[in-house]
Amino acid sequence: METRVWHYDGRSGQRRMPAIVPGADERYFTLHGDDADPGPYAFADLEPHGTSHHERAFGLKGRPGWRITFMEFPPSEIAVQLPKPARYGKWIDRFGLWRSIGVLAVLAILTVGFTLKLPPLIARLIPKSVEQRMGRLMVGNLGTYACSTREGNAALKALGARLRQDGDVTIRVVHAPMVNAVAFPGGQVVLFDGLIQNAASPDEVAGVLGHELGHVAHHDGMESLVRQYGLKLLLGGFGSNISGYGNALLNARYSRKAEAGADGYAIGRLQAADISPLPTAALFARLAQQDKEPGNAGLLLNYLSSHPLSSSRERTFKESARAGATYRPALDAAQWQALRTMCGDSPSR
């Protein structure tokens, strides 16, 4: 029985209906009748083009537009020679759809996981000198508002020493009413005077400072910048948008994990220095309370919004207090007074 196929030769749009005849060498076939170019053609040169299950169309390698289309299922001696049509794509067809999806899904999860882990990795890869220069540039403008008295500086130094600050960390008090503290890259820690005026004891300031030192130790500032600005940070030369970066850090919302890490660091430092964590817990509670009172909202919102306060955080500090431990104040009365009056006698707010 003859097998007729629809045939286009790719040169003219004329449709022919020749018979397809397998050759003596079973790897080849010829087209007979209806003015078709008889060939011979190699089965191996056929490219599947068919899309529906009741029609099988094939092209020929190197002959765009050349087509044969079987109108019914071809006889078995031809069918076995025909290439299988691709369905989802070469690799996926070979591997199986569901198996491919499974493997690809695992790969996708790994890729996403790795991408999420990338910012801390990149942040740690940035050279220390670059990070320090960046930090100094960011503090830049704020630095001109830095308060400095001999006694105040000495008190700040003493507080840092109690918390065993690293040599690379610079702590400044800035004359601004915000109840806030920031850790810029390169160990540039800024305490706002508003925070010191709001504190009831030096232990509270020590807790906040410990928290910021934790951010410094964990490179959280740099990581947050990498997260927000990505490659732009590295490509653009950080000189171009330094004030933007500074603002971003001032309003940074660190991840819950970063906050918990910094809290843990602060608690560790407080403990090592025999400073009670209870005042810090009280500060958190008081800030939350004051925030509810009308009139204070704008002032306190800043610190609370950038450091999401939850009762669990307050509790962590509370629970870290050891019964029977002998705590010493972070600063003596004279030092505390010097710190509070660093930015002038009149409170800045």
Partner: peptide, 11 residues
């Protein structure tokens, strides 16, 4: 799109 659209083996 036109170059990848065939009809009667013509594009």
């Amino acid at each position: 799109r036109l170059s990848r659209t065939y009809w009667h083996g013509i594009r």
